[in-house]
């Protein structure tokens, strides 16, 4: 059975451990709390590893299973009700088995299609895009999860003074976390005012553009490699992301036939407290309330839009509309989506 509308039934999140404030992060990096306050504007983040020892305390699968379990419980569904699972991440625990299949196992899901999307900040939107297609194709309910962990790339082993700036910037931006959404073919129940997914924008626009975010990996033959593993072209991101975000808003509005005054809530890109504030100054949605999490969670990559959705859904009143915008600078993917509560 083909369907036109899919619904967001519930959300769930997982943020490991206690929040790590800027004083603690500065101590970890040997960096400056005052600089992080001023130039990043993110107040706290969570790490699934012990900053003192580097020991991994919780894996990506741990976080994703927790977020997924919470979303299922909030939707009032059992694992057997879920007909597909999509997990988006840039930092899987292993290449195989995929973290997506590990999470399906942990949640007691079997004999269902399980997809893993290798993605960054647009991963949650890619999951929504794939999920809506699967529901439109006849599936009744699916679980979408996004998450990332930083333990392979961030460590207090080196002096911040001697770290290349394009690597150093990652240490002050990112945190660990996971978020999940249950997607359904029907609103929660008879008479329920379901949250409908009205539109999704998911477009790679990186032809002939160098990457804005680069993450490498190594294996048996090159595990001692000296090559660059992590780099962010923060100058290109600062220059281009605000303008691209504005274009995404106009494109979504144009496709939906909505006006700027009809947007009640806006979920802007969550790069850092400072950058998100700068992007918000440019977005043409004067009457929309901002739904952000980055100042408390840090940039959690694939988890971000789901963490924002977790904050949005309780605030989204009957008849209200919301837009979400995200830019994945790795290969300049433009992404966003639109929601409306009946």
């Amino acid at each position: 059975m083909s369907r036109d509308t899919v619904y967001l039934a519930a959300t769930g999140t997982a943020l490991p451990g206690d929040p790590v404030d800027n004083a603690a992060l500065a101590k970890l990096l040997g960096a400056s709390e005052e600089w992080i306050d001023l130039f990043v504007g993110t107040r706290t983040r969570h790490f699934a590893w012990d900053p003192a020892t580097g020991e991994v305390l919780r894996t990506l699968a741990d976080l994703c299973a927790e977020a997924g379990s919470r979303a299922l419980a909030a939707a009032g569904l059992d694992p057997a009700d879920i007909e597909f699972l999509v997990l988006a991440t840039a930092t899987p625990d292993h290449l195989l088995p995929t973290t997506a299949t590990e999470v399906a196992d942990r949640l007691g899901m079997d004999h269902l299609p399980v997809y893993q999307l290798q993605a960054g900040c647009s991963g949650a939107v890619q999951a929504l895009d794939l999920g809506r297609c699967l529901v439109a194709g006849g599936r009744r309910a699916g679980l979408l999860i996004g998450g990332d962990v930083t333990h392979r790339f961030l460590a207090a082993r080196r002096s911040a003074a001697r770290m290349p700036t394009e690597e150093l910037v990652n240490h002050v931006l990112f945190g660990d976390g996971a978020g999940a959404v249950v997607l359904t073919a029907e609103p929660d129940g008879p008479g329920e005012r379901g949250v409908a997914l009205r539109g999704v924008l998911n477009r790679c626009a990186g032809r002939r553009r160098p990457p804005g975010q680069f993450i490498d990996w190594s294996g048996i033959s090159d595990r001692d490699t000296e090559r660059r593993m992590l780099a962010e072209d923060y100058k290109a991101i600062e220059e281009h992301v605000p303008a691209i975000s504005v274009e995404i808003v106009w494109e979504l509005l144009g496709e939906l036939g909505w006006t700027v005054d009809e947007v009640d809530h806006i979920l802007p890109p969550q790069l850092s407290g400072r950058m998100t504030a700068r992007i918000m100054e440019h977005l043409p949605v004067p009457s929309a309330a901002e739904v952000s999490c980055v100042t408390e969670t840090g940039n959690t990559g694939n988890a971000l839009p789901f963490l924002q959705l977790d904050r949005l859904l309780p605030r989204l009143g009957p008849g209200q509309r919301a837009l979400a915008v995200t830019v994945e600078s790795s290969k300049w993917i433009r992404a966003g989506f639109a929601l409306e509560r009946a």
């Binding site: 040997g30 400056s32 600089w35 130039f39 911040a160 003074a161 150093l168």
Partner: peptide
């Protein structure tokens, strides 16, 4: 740039000459 400002802060600190941002 701002990131090199941070590296400068750390460098001065490491050499016992801390200067607030």
């Amino acid at each position: 740039d701002s990131l090199n400002l941070l590296r400068m802060v750390v460098l001065l600190e490491e050499h016992g000459r801390p200067v607030p941002v």
